[in-house]
Simulated assay, not measured.
Amino acid sequence: MLIAKNQFGELIEADQAIAGQLFSCPGCQRPLCLKKGQIKMPHFAHRPGMVCDYFSENESQLHLVAKKCLNRILTQVGYQTQLEKVFPEIKQRADLWIQDADGRQLAIEFQQSPISVDKLRQRTAGYHRIGLQVIWILGPNYFRQHLQERTIFKFADANDMIFTWAPSSNQLTVCSCFQKNDLSVLKMQQHQYSPESFLDIFLRGSHHSSQQVQAIRSKSYLRRDLKHMQQQLALKRFSPDMVRLVYEQKHTSPINAPWLVHGGNQAGLKVSNQHWRLAMLLALEAGSETGRLSRNAFIKEFSSESYFYERSWENHLSQQAVVNFLRELSLAGYICLKSAYILVRSLPPWPDNYQQKLALLR
């Protein structure tokens, strides 16, 4: 930790502290030791055996340098800042707290080490309870390696953006507009900002990344996507539960599903786009027998963590992804989409076999 209270109760940074004086933790109020050596930057530490709910003792040198560097840059450009600000009402402390001239506040967490999604949710929810926005900035330990899609969406904010920082260049990067089809790796847009302009953009909401994902409709892609489904079925990698649902709806095979289940481009899914779109189609088929389905219940089911990766906060964009699929069907005339319910008109028929399905592309 970089901040402590001195013997007069004033906050002081470790590199300005004088050895031999008394220091205490701003969170738990217990005594601290000042450590100034030749290798690691000056910092404070709790005495051995002491447990603090606010501060961790295992922060890396990079973590300490990162938050101190960000604090220096943001202070120089006019932000009001405080390193390691303690929030007693939620028993948390932020790596860095900033406020702009308009009074907008933001907590910054610089994440260099692994953290569970439960812990991430707990800390994010804590900030939200006191009306404070928070962004998680990933350090080099994350972006030096190939990030798994699960990890990316764990840290993505409510607008599906993630943030990384390279200390060597003082560049903050916003990653957004994620797309993922079943035949390629995750794609994204990246924009680099200096820390001062980045925070101004974030606090004022000037960075827009929302992008409606469109299904891929080229014939060559659809054929490859169908072949991919065949391979998944042959290798028994396609969900057995999904195959069972297909049979329960009196269909012979997932391969014969209408073409609209192919070509999905939605990122953040635990399952394939084929699986997700087929599951929604089968649910609409089953619901057509009762006349109409609850729109909210349908959106809740197919935007849930049964299909999408766990997030640090509520995933509104997964809900929008379901709405986009429903609108696709509505524009094609298959359903009538109302504010409270979905009325199924006439869903596309299933081809009798593989060759018949291919013939529909000609």
Score class of each variant (00 low, 15 high):
22 L>H: 11
24 S>N: 08
25 C>D: 04
26 P>G: 04
26 P>R: 10
27 G>F: 04
29 Q>V: 10
29 Q>E: 12
29 Q>S: 11
29 Q>N: 12
30 R>K: 14
33 C>P: 13
35 K>Q: 02
36 K>C: 13
37 G>F: 06
39 I>E: 12
42 P>G: 11
43 H>K: 03
44 F>K: 04
44 F>I: 13
45 A>S: 10
45 A>D: 04
45 A>W: 05
48 P>F: 10
48 P>V: 01
48 P>Q: 14
48 P>T: 02
49 G>H: 07
50 M>W: 11
50 M>A: 11
56 S>L: 01
56 S>Q: 15
56 S>N: 12
57 E>S: 15
58 N>R: 13
59 E>C: 05
59 E>V: 03
60 S>N: 06
60 S>Q: 05
61 Q>Y: 03
62 L>C: 13
64 L>W: 04
67 K>S: 10
67 K>D: 09
67 K>P: 00
68 K>M: 13
68 K>G: 07
69 C>R: 15
70 L>S: 03
70 L>Y: 05
72 R>C: 12
72 R>L: 15
74 L>F: 01
74 L>R: 11
74 L>A: 08
74 L>S: 06
74 L>N: 03
75 T>H: 04
76 Q>W: 09
76 Q>K: 13
76 Q>N: 12
77 V>I: 15
77 V>W: 12
77 V>G: 11
79 Y>T: 13
81 T>K: 05
81 T>F: 12
83 L>C: 01
83 L>I: 01
84 E>G: 04
86 V>C: 09
86 V>F: 10
86 V>D: 03
87 F>C: 00
89 E>R: 00
90 I>V: 04
91 K>Y: 08
92 Q>I: 08
93 R>T: 00
95 D>M: 03
95 D>W: 07
98 I>G: 03
98 I>F: 03
99 Q>D: 08
101 A>M: 08
101 A>K: 12
102 D>F: 08
102 D>P: 10
103 G>I: 08
103 G>Y: 01
103 G>S: 05
103 G>P: 08
106 L>N: 02
107 A>D: 06
107 A>G: 00
108 I>F: 11
109 E>M: 05
111 Q>S: 09
111 Q>P: 11
113 S>F: 11
113 S>G: 10
114 P>W: 04
114 P>K: 03
114 P>C: 01
115 I>Q: 01
117 V>W: 09
118 D>I: 14
119 K>M: 12
119 K>V: 09
119 K>A: 15
120 L>D: 01
121 R>N: 02
121 R>L: 07
121 R>F: 08
122 Q>A: 07
123 R>D: 11
123 R>Y: 10
126 G>F: 02
126 G>D: 04
130 I>A: 14
131 G>C: 06
132 L>C: 03
132 L>K: 06
132 L>S: 02
132 L>V: 06
133 Q>M: 14
133 Q>C: 13
133 Q>S: 15
135 I>M: 12
137 I>R: 06
138 L>P: 07
139 G>H: 07
140 P>Y: 09
142 Y>S: 07
143 F>R: 10
147 L>G: 06
148 Q>E: 14
149 E>H: 09
149 E>S: 10
150 R>Q: 05
151 T>D: 12
151 T>E: 13
152 I>W: 06
152 I>Y: 00
152 I>H: 02
152 I>Q: 07
